[in-house]
């Protein structure tokens, strides 16, 4: 092996990609050639310098919890939800849900969208009436096993009406009702599970990823914050709804 060849394959040597024979040959050359030895040393030291100076930071605790929850909550690939029939739902509605679920599962979409739209459009009555976000947060305190932190929307865009307990994707949910003129909106707050936000239309506003999906004339926009999943359902297009949400001051 001469200097020309050594120069050509030095990168592979440093990366440990040479065959044993070639490596031996190259090292024999390095033993005799100071110039090539310097070059090899340089390449090795550069690689080591990069590695030493670009540490991989550990995952934040919140992300670890989120990932562990995802792993705990999604027991099988492409599996139907464990419970398809809720006691309170009439048989016909349950059948409709079953069809919906089958469709959503086979098409790869989260059942969450359909469920959120169904629950929004059935307009269940609120259990607590209030215009005050803090009051509603307090009301949920003893009722759900997570800390309901509500976004503070600009009252010009969305004014709070009230709230009730609900479910979404087999999880406890805080359902919070908002109003804009005569239009009604439902915000579902649940613990974040294995929802794949990336499969949908997403965009970033104020460092936060908002994803949207339109279904049956409604728009669902969802986002994650502090290990919770927020799903807002309303009529109007995604950009319309997003502009209302985007005026939210950052928590």
């Amino acid at each position: 092996m001469d200097c020309q060849v050594v120069q050509e394959v030095l990168q592979f040597y440093v990366d440990g990609e040479l065959d044993d024979d070639d490596e031996l040959e190259l090292e024999q050359h390095l033993g005799q050639c100071a110039a090539c030895r310097t070059r090899a040393d340089y390449e090795r030291r550069f690689k080591a310098a990069v590695r030493a100076r670009v540490p991989l930071e550990p995952a934040p605790a919140a992300l670890r919890r989120q990932v562990e929850q995802t792993l705990a909550e999604q027991p099988a690939p492409r599996r139907l939800p464990r419970t398809l029939v809720w006691g309170s739902i009439p048989a016909a509605a349950a059948l409709a849900m079953l069809i919906t679920f089958t469709w959503t599962v086979t098409s790869g979409f989260s059942p969450l969208v359909d469920e959120a739209v169904s629950r929004h459009s059935s307009e269940p009555p609120v259990e607590v009436s209030s215009h005050d976000s803090s009051e509603v947060e307090n009301w949920f305190r003893s009722k759900v096993d997570f800390n309901v932190a509500l976004p503070r929307f600009h009252p010009r865009n969305l004014s709070l009406v009230g709230a009730r307990l609900s479910n979404l994707a087999e999880r406890q949910a805080a359902l919070v009702r908002y109003q804009h003129g005569t239009r009604r909106f439902s915000l579902f707050v649940t613990t974040a599970g294995g929802e794949d936000l990336s499969a949908n239309h997403c965009q970033r506003v104020h460092q936060r990823k908002f994803c949207s999906e339109e279904r049956r004339g409604y728009t669902v926009i969802w986002w994650r914050s502090h290990g919770l999943l927020y799903s807002m359902v309303g009529d109007g297009g995604p950009s319309d709804l997003l502009s209302m949400l985007a005026s939210t001051p950052e928590e």
Binding site: T70, Q74, E195
Partner: peptide, 8 residues
């Protein structure tokens, strides 16, 4: 987000 989406 990227890591969470990766696990999902």
């Amino acid at each position: 987000d990227l890591v969470q989406d990766t696990y999902v």
